[in-house]
Design a protein around this nucleic acid. Structure first.
Lengths: 149, 149
DNA sequence: CCTCTTTGGTTGTACTATGCAACCAAAGAA
DNA sequence: TTCTTTGGTTGCATAGTACAACCAAAGAGG
């Protein structure tokens, strides 16, 4: 008589994995559709550039191009667009007169803060009625999952 | 003397939530960078159209346009591109001679199967050394998280 | 049975995002 | 000082998209 347990376990395991794949795919899909409409006049790319400028505390266009694997001409135009919207400011690089340090303007920082606040609030809303220990375990599962390179 | 416990709990809770936000954002970002390079000659849009054709077992261009909120002209050209790549086939709709039923070709189905297999394998690899009950709990957390509309 | 409207699909035109190449100006090397 | 490298802008070509015009088939109303 064959042992029934291993088969049943393997099936349950596979079901869990399939479910995780489905749900994480849904997370990614939802994230994409949400970030699609960040702010009027901002595309996903320009927003990402602006966010990176904030994270780095300002940097040159070449650095952005290298980081996002974009052509420098593309970055140049996007920065020009952001500048026209009043969301970034350029200052000459004191150490290299060819370069410009690009930074979010006050309006740019405000916009980033607003978007972050909205996104964070969305997470809070989603998790509002979760018990503390479930939150903690969920967080550790996700960390473990992402830690796999 | 103020009660220290609530403050400490609130902080730990906030940390868990922040961690969940960080990790789920990372999941979405990784998904985007992976799906960016699905197959030579296929963009994210054409792949998504092809996948939907498979899911629906074939449908008309108008249905695709309605589902993805694309203009029918855009769909028409993308379908033409997919056809030129040999990934879809058109057959006249027997019930309405204006319409065409578009279906993945054998090559298209093969391509979809390959991509699915690769993606599923990536999930398997990531979760290979997880105990069964952790998988199950992780899956249920994700389902619970996504269930919030 | 004949028109008029609706609907599925294609094609022309315009706009945007992007990459490549050419160019300019400043920095650095020989 | 001259030559090469580097940060940035601009000209050009391409791809994806929407809108509008158009065609052909279906359906409605007389």
């Amino acid at each position: 008589m064959p042992t029934p347990t291993p088969a049943r376990t393997a099936s349950a395991r596979s079901e869990s994995i399939d479910s995780i794949q489905r749900e994480l795919t849904a997370v990614a899909r939802r994230a994409r559709s949400v970030t699609a409409q960040i702010h009027p006049g901002l595309t996903l790319v320009t927003y990402t550039l602006l966010d990176h400028l904030h994270e780095r505390g300002g940097c040159r266009g070449t650095d952005l191009a290298a980081h996002f694997l974009l052509d420098k001409s593309t970055v140049s135009r996007q920065i020009a667009a952001l500048e026209k919207l009043g969301l970034v400011e350029r200052t000459a690089d004191p150490e290299d007169l060819r370069g410009q340090i690009i930074r979010p303007s006050a309006a740019g920082e405000q916009l980033l803060a607003d978007v972050r606040e909205r996104r964070h609030q969305a997470f809070l809303d989603r998790l509002v009625d979760w018990p503390d220990d479930d939150l903690e375990r969920f967080a550790s599962y996700l960390a473990l999952y992402n830690a796999r390179t």
